[in-house]
Amino acid sequence: MLAKYQVATIEGDGIGPEVCQAAVLVLKEALGEGIVSFDDFPGGATHYVKSGQVLPPDTFEACKNAHAMLHGAAGLPNVTYPDGTEVGNDLHLQLRFKLDLYANVRPIRLYQADFSPLKNRRAGDIDYVIVRENTEGLYASRGAGVLLRGEVATDTLVLTRKGCERIARFAFDLSRKRNGAPSDHKRRITVCDKANILRSYAFFRSVCDDVAKDYPDVSIDYSYVDAMTVHLVKRPEFYDVIVAENLFGDIISDLGAATVGGMGIAPSGELGDHHGLFQGAHGSAPDIAGQNIASPLATILSGSFMLQWLGDRHADPRLTEASQRVDRAVELTLAQGKTIPRDLGGLASCTEMTQAICRNLK
């Protein structure tokens, strides 16, 4: 029987194959037969070494035509372009720009109190989402900046009204689907910028203000990015959805992940109007590749996020229910305390984590 939805998987580099295969096993267990097919395609730094292509045309076509994309990890430090930038990063950057994946969504959730380096926190105290504009900002200069005579280097921060408006609307729409901030259960958008110093960020804030007029049920809040690094440590329970320019969103996402246990438990999705790419927020960790000690949690949670997105997009409750089951199985596995990955203080292997989650799915 032909599956209704096709997911293109790119296992990638380093620990990418291990964590991607683990996520697929969990998702198949949650879904059963005949709903989603997972088809693997080559790409990444390892494939570049073999073929000279980081994103082969056939892989791109498969991704463009699939219902969603699931990625392991990409990049190897010693595989670089002549300008010194890593080849592997170009995989998701090409997909990002070619498919206009303008919203980078990073859920930040504390599953167990002892995973956090913050004092006096309980499970659920931290539960917010960072929405990062993904196609503009300072990163729009990648490959287009100026290096003059080895003496002067410039990159340009680019923001458009269209880009700011659509990411703001995405953030407000997302808040409407959530239950508000843990501290007061209020739906709230926090605009993270540097509007007091740079005109570009003042423009970003002004567009967010314009969009907010269409969402009277969602309050709007503001934080300069330097203050945000303090607030995410001192009062993370205040936040519901945070919206930010590309660079700032990238930085605070890693800080947020650190407060709940690290990059190994941080899922992400890069979303556009028609396509979605899902992967753990961590890197390829080549130093531990092939040792079966990497945590698959971020990729499994990214896969669950993918099912939720597909379920919403296609109004298919089977996908939504499977996503909820995966989330509950992960939460139960961690709460039981017997199977914990190394990055969260345990000893469980990638295989053991995957098997424990599959058991709890049943």
Results as ranks from 00 to 15, higher is better:
residue 168 A to F: 08
residue 177 K to G: 00
residue 172 F to R: 01
residue 149 R to Y: 10
residue 161 R to I: 02
residue 178 R to E: 03
residue 170 F to V: 05
residue 175 S to E: 00
residue 188 R to W: 03
residue 211 V to P: 00
residue 113 A to T: 04
residue 140 A to S: 14
residue 137 G to V: 06
residue 184 D to S: 12
residue 122 R to N: 14
residue 141 S to M: 11
residue 123 A to T: 04
residue 178 R to N: 05
residue 141 S to R: 08
residue 136 E to Y: 13
residue 221 D to L: 00
residue 223 S to E: 04
residue 163 G to V: 06
residue 177 K to A: 07
residue 115 F to V: 07
residue 104 N to W: 02
residue 123 A to S: 11
residue 116 S to C: 08
residue 169 R to L: 04
residue 111 Y to H: 12
residue 177 K to E: 07
residue 192 C to L: 09
residue 143 G to P: 10
residue 215 Y to I: 05
residue 166 R to I: 01
residue 117 P to K: 08
residue 169 R to K: 15
residue 168 A to Y: 01
residue 107 P to A: 10
residue 132 R to W: 09
residue 135 T to I: 09
residue 226 D to K: 03
residue 178 R to H: 09
residue 163 G to M: 05
residue 161 R to E: 12
residue 135 T to R: 04
residue 115 F to G: 01
residue 120 N to K: 13
residue 184 D to T: 10
residue 180 G to D: 11
residue 108 I to N: 05
residue 160 T to G: 13
residue 155 D to E: 15
residue 148 L to I: 12
residue 170 F to E: 07
residue 157 L to P: 04
residue 108 I to S: 05
residue 207 V to M: 03
residue 157 L to G: 02
residue 169 R to G: 05
residue 225 V to D: 00
residue 155 D to K: 15
residue 165 E to H: 13
residue 142 R to D: 10
residue 122 R to C: 15
residue 158 V to L: 14
residue 152 V to H: 14
residue 110 L to Y: 03
residue 158 V to R: 14
residue 226 D to T: 10
residue 125 D to H: 10
residue 161 R to H: 10
residue 162 K to E: 08
residue 152 V to A: 12
residue 185 H to P: 09
residue 201 Y to R: 00
residue 132 R to H: 08
residue 161 R to L: 07
residue 140 A to N: 07
residue 206 S to V: 00
residue 152 V to Q: 13
residue 139 Y to R: 11
residue 222 Y to G: 01
residue 181 A to W: 04
residue 215 Y to T: 05
residue 127 D to V: 06
residue 207 V to Y: 01
residue 132 R to Q: 08
residue 176 R to D: 00
residue 170 F to D: 03
residue 204 F to Y: 15
residue 215 Y to V: 04
residue 108 I to G: 03
residue 216 P to N: 13
residue 187 R to C: 12
residue 168 A to K: 05
residue 196 N to Y: 11
residue 194 K to V: 03
residue 159 L to R: 02
residue 213 K to V: 12
residue 169 R to A: 04
residue 140 A to W: 15
residue 124 G to W: 04
residue 131 V to M: 11
residue 164 C to T: 14
residue 225 V to H: 05
residue 153 A to S: 14
residue 111 Y to K: 02
residue 183 S to F: 06
residue 153 A to F: 11
residue 153 A to Q: 13
residue 112 Q to K: 14
residue 116 S to D: 05
